[in-house]
């Protein structure tokens, strides 16, 4: 029984880490209709930059400023060179463009900052807490709290600030937003920056957990099933999706894994997503789309 509870709790907490990454995707998808495959590379880039600054001796809080500035600059460049020329193209074309973009960002990040593994200490020791006989990872707990805090902050931004409302308008109906006078390009830049900052937070947490290096960008492959289950357009859905994926993945590995050789976490989440696609194609919290001829 303890094993089941432990695996469940561990899985749920790990799932919040997936949600953190997925939130960045949702933001961009809501505002620009693009599934941004480059989110993983941007995550890697920002985490690497931050760690390099830290290692150069700049204190933690100060190092955040140039990193966020770099993210903003990158968002502007992406909007200029990738999004604007590809306006009105199909979603698949945009996706493939972000595929190319991920290669560019990865190449630049690793070329400029090296391929070494960097340790990242954000002040949370990765030691277990024991509740009775139950092992809970302290780090994962903090990550979960961060994810919730992030969602709360984002919710506040979307509800209360002018920019947030503009974002929601753009997500709802792009043409109507344009007709009201909202600067679409500016909004895209802002969304990509916010998504990049979300990615930075996720990157820092993932990096602290397992070292900042190249494989960090592979975390995007886990975000896909999360988004399919939770829906592409809902942040809350991203959280729920992450929880479901995290829990089921770990439980499956613990209980089904030993019978078929182990290591099924690489594809289990995808098959789960496939199942959801048959039952509820747009995800639990996604919007239904109607295809017209």
């Amino acid at each position: 029984m303890t094993l089941f509870l432990e695996t469940l709790i561990g899985g749920l907490l790990a799932g919040t880490m997936y949600s953190l990454v997925a939130i960045g995707f949702v933001l961009i998808y809501k505002a620009s209709g693009v599934f941004n495959f480059a989110q993983g590379s941007i995550l890697l880039f920002s985490a690497l930059l931050f760690v390099t600054l830290l290692e150069a001796g700049i204190p933690f809080a100060l190092a955040l400023i140039p990193t966020i500035a770099a993210i903003a600059i990158m968002a502007v460049l992406i909007e200029w060179w990738v999004l604007r020329p590809l306006t009105n193209r199909s979603a698949m074309t945009l996706f493939m463009a972000t595929l190319g973009l991920s290669y560019v960002v990865e190449g630049v990040a690793q070329g400029a900052m090296g391929a070494n593994v960097h340790a990242l200490d954000i002040g949370i020791p990765d030691l277990p807490i024991f509740v009775g006989d139950l092992l809970i990872s302290q780090f994962d707990l903090v990550a979960a709290i961060t994810a919730i805090a992030l969602v709360a902050i984002l919710a506040l931004i979307f509800d209360r600030t002018r920019i947030g409302i503009s974002l929601r308008a753009v997500a709802d109906d792009t043409r109507a937003a344009l007709s009201v006078g909202i600067n679409l390009n500016r909004i895209w830049q802002i969304v990509w920056t916010v998504a990049g900052i979300t990615g930075l937070v996720a990157g820092l947490l993932w990096g602290a957990r397992q070292g900042v290096q190249f494989s960090l960008s592979l975390v995007v492959l886990k975000a896909l099933p999360v988004l399919i289950i939770g829906g592409f357009t809902s942040i809350f859905g991203a959280i729920i999706g992450g929880l479901i994926v995290g829990a089921s993945e770990n439980l499956a590995e613990a209980y089904i894994g030993p019978y078929i050789g182990g290591g099924i976490t690489s594809w289990f989440a995808y098959f789960l997503a496939l199942l959801f696609l048959f039952i509820r194609p747009t995800g639990i919290f996604g919007e239904r789309t109607i295809q017209r001829v």
């Binding site: 463009a97 595929l99 960002v105 990865e106 190449g107």
Partner: peptide, 15 residues
């Protein structure tokens, strides 16, 4: 890494 970046840039350019 330069090669990677060039590939990615080419993909975007072609698209």
């Amino acid at each position: 890494n330069i090669q990677k970046a060039i590939f990615g840039a080419l993909i975007i350019w072609f698209l």
